[in-house]
Simulated scan of single mutants.
Amino acid sequence: MMKKPFVIRTMTREEVDLAIEWAAQEGWNPGLDDAANYYAADPNGFLIGLLGDEPIATISAIRYDASFGFIGFYIVKPEYRGKGYGIQIWNTALESLEGCNIALDGVVAQQDNYKKSGFQLAYRNIRYEGAGGGGPALSPSIVPLSALSIDQLQSYDQAFFPAPRPQFLQTWLRQPSAQAYGIVKDGQLTGYGVIRQCRSGYKIGPIYADTPGMAEQLFLALKSTVSERDAIFLDVPEVNAEAVALAERYQMTVSFETARMYTQSEPELPLNRIYGVTSFEIG
């Protein structure tokens, strides 16, 4: 019997749904609209590995621009692990991002393997879990993000991410099962946050804010959009002590962590103003 060929190619939009489903099976708890959101970031950035006609491996290699890319969705079907298929699709993903500073949020157990491919640890991201509900009346400075122009949002977002991401932002901020708020002071955007519905509960991310007080206002506004029966999740850079304190102040507990790693030097981002990471899958 002839051995089936292993073929790696770019995913179709429908196949991104499969990657999301596999991520759910791995316990990653994706958002309800994540497939459309992530595909908007780079339609050519998703790879699938097929053994004959059977999908057995996925990975995303999002190229934001000529200098920065992000790896995620690195999954091999359990029965095909340890057979060399994973490393093939991994290497293809890295080759597709040649010339970029490549980032990932890797599970702690895989850190040493990622180091073999040239990734270096920058810091840990910590996932906190808590309950929704509560919150005081919204501050007059908090507005729905839909009231602001995409140019204003893109201009503010650019300080917090290593590359422009306008197509992704437009989709992320307008996804159907999400709420998004900004803080406006003297006509200027000084922070924004998003909460989106997931398979289980709701994830908050990002929260970017110019001060700890503004971050807390956004957190409370987002938290109050769901009920106290709903679980909420917030992923914070451990190096931001104020973000850790915010999560702990509202009785959130650690449920998961990742290693943020880069192949080149760590980008100069204002980590002290990042209170919630957008996504472990695409940055």
Rank of each mutant, 00 (worst) to 15 (best):
I87A: 09
Y85K: 12
R81S: 02
N91G: 10
I87R: 15
A66P: 14
R81W: 01
E79Q: 14
L94Y: 07
Y85R: 07
Y85C: 04
I75N: 05
W90C: 14
T92M: 11
Y85E: 08
N91K: 15
V76K: 07
K83M: 15
I87V: 15
R81I: 07
I71D: 01
P78E: 05
K83A: 11
L94G: 07
Y74T: 01
G72L: 05
G82N: 09
F70C: 04
I89S: 14
R81E: 05
P78T: 00
I89L: 10
N91S: 13
A93H: 02
E79D: 07
L94I: 13
G84E: 14
V76C: 05
E95D: 14
G84I: 12
G82E: 03
K77Q: 07
Q88C: 08
I89F: 06
G84S: 06
Y74I: 01
L94M: 12
Q88A: 11
F68R: 00
F73T: 04
K77D: 01
I87W: 12
R81A: 00
Q88M: 15
N91L: 11
G72I: 06
Y85W: 11
F68C: 06
V76R: 03
I75Q: 11
G69T: 06
Y74W: 08
F70W: 11
W90H: 10
N91T: 12
E95H: 11
I71F: 02
I75C: 01
R81N: 05
G86W: 02
Y85F: 08
E95M: 13
R81L: 02
L94H: 06
W90T: 07
S67F: 07
I89W: 05
Q88L: 13
G72H: 04
S67V: 10
R81Y: 02
G69A: 10
N91R: 12
Y74A: 03
S67H: 13
T92F: 12
T92H: 12
A93I: 03
I75K: 06
R81Q: 08
A66R: 14
G69L: 04
A93W: 03
Y74R: 11
Y74E: 02
I89C: 15
T92E: 14
Y80N: 00
W90S: 09
V76E: 02
G86S: 05
K83H: 14
G72Y: 08
W90P: 13
P78C: 03
Y85V: 06
I75T: 02
I71P: 01
W90K: 08
L94A: 07
G84W: 07
K77T: 05
A93E: 00
L94P: 11
G86Y: 03
F73Y: 14
Y85I: 10
T92W: 13
F68K: 04
G84R: 04
A93M: 03
P78F: 00
G86A: 00
N91H: 11
T92D: 09
Y80A: 00
R81C: 04
Y80H: 00
F70N: 07
I89H: 09
Y74F: 14
G69H: 04
G84C: 11
